[in-house]
Amino acid sequence: MSRISLRIAIAVLFGILEICSIEAAAQEPGNVPETQAPAPVAAKHPDNDYWRKHDQQLLTDFPWLERFKEADLKLGPPAAGQARVVFMGDSITEGWHFDTPGGVFAAKPYINRGISGQTTPQMVLRFHQDVIALQPKVVVILAGTNDIAGNTGPMTLEETEANLAAMAEMADANHIRVVLCSVLPAYDYPWQPGLTPAPKIKLINAWMRGYAAARGYVYVDYHSAMKDARDGLPVKLSQDGVHPTQAGYDVMTPLVEEGIAKALAK
């Protein structure tokens, strides 16, 4: 073979190898920064005094066990024959104020254990102290909207559902009857806008309804009774689209009373 022919053959061979390497690289998943999918960005809440205190609380006592620790100890066991009910939840439960003099449930043995801003992982960690140790006949669980808002970091719907199931099953194992309440409608969160919570809330509620039916728990559907055309809370029931006004609680009260009665009858 002449020198010219050899050079041509080598050039052709290198050309073929280069083409093959380009095609192989095109078929491989991106492995350089500019071709990788961007990492999910954690939702950030406003920088104000409330949220700074909230974040500090997560560092020192994530589930906030100190909040009701002394009150739980002072409460003691229920009186003989008393049908104690504990409400576990977030600000929507805390804001109900039913266990204060003159409250809507003041004459009943109902205990409010709602903490503003809390997510389901926090509630799971304080569930034994703030629910099981109080020996109620019934627990009313209303939680999940702050998970969607990312108050303690990004969460999947499946993680929220697993935490709701964990609380229900802990109660069940301790002979406490379970009332699972639908997440209230919300079109947007004022402190975390743009997360489109409405369809996510509907998915959690659909799961919760099916789970409660399968496990023999009571399901209370606030959502259907309170939603507007956007699957949010109407102005007549909420000033900020998330937290009920007294008119909102007036809708919720007979629904949860019916749910408690059903649970006690089981």
Rank of each mutant, 00 (worst) to 15 (best):
L6F: 15
I8H: 14
I8N: 12
V12A: 13
L13E: 10
F14N: 08
G15A: 10
G15F: 10
I16V: 15
I16N: 14
L17Y: 15
I19P: 11
I19W: 13
I19S: 11
C20Y: 15
C20Q: 15
I22R: 11
A25W: 11
A26F: 06
Q27W: 10
E28K: 13
E28A: 13
P29I: 11
N31L: 12
N31D: 12
E34V: 10
P38L: 13
P38K: 15
P46L: 03
N48C: 08
R52Y: 08
D55R: 14
L58A: 09
L59F: 04
D61S: 01
W64T: 09
E66V: 11
R67H: 15
K69A: 14
L73E: 04
L73H: 03
K74R: 14
P78D: 12
G81E: 02
Q82N: 09
A83C: 04
A83W: 02
V85Y: 02
V86M: 05
S91T: 12
T100D: 02
T100I: 13
G102M: 13
G114E: 02
S116F: 11
Q118A: 05
Q122L: 10
M123E: 12
F127A: 04
H128G: 05
H128M: 14
V131A: 00
I132Y: 04
L134I: 07
L134K: 05
P136I: 02
V138I: 09
I141A: 00
L142S: 04
G144F: 12
T145R: 07
N146Y: 04
T152R: 03
P154K: 09
M155P: 03
T160S: 05
E161H: 07
M167G: 01
M170A: 07
A173W: 10
A173Y: 08
I176P: 02
R177D: 14
R177Y: 02
C181E: 04
C181S: 08
V183A: 05
A186W: 06
A186L: 05
P193A: 12
G194S: 13
P197G: 07
I201D: 00
I204N: 00
M208K: 11
Y219D: 08
Y222S: 11
K227A: 14
D228V: 09
D231E: 02
D231R: 05
G232A: 06
P234Q: 06
P234I: 07
K236E: 13
K236V: 15
D240Q: 03
Q246L: 10
Y249G: 07
Y249N: 02
Y249M: 08
M252L: 09
P254F: 02
I260H: 00
A261T: 09
K262H: 02
K262N: 01
K266P: 00
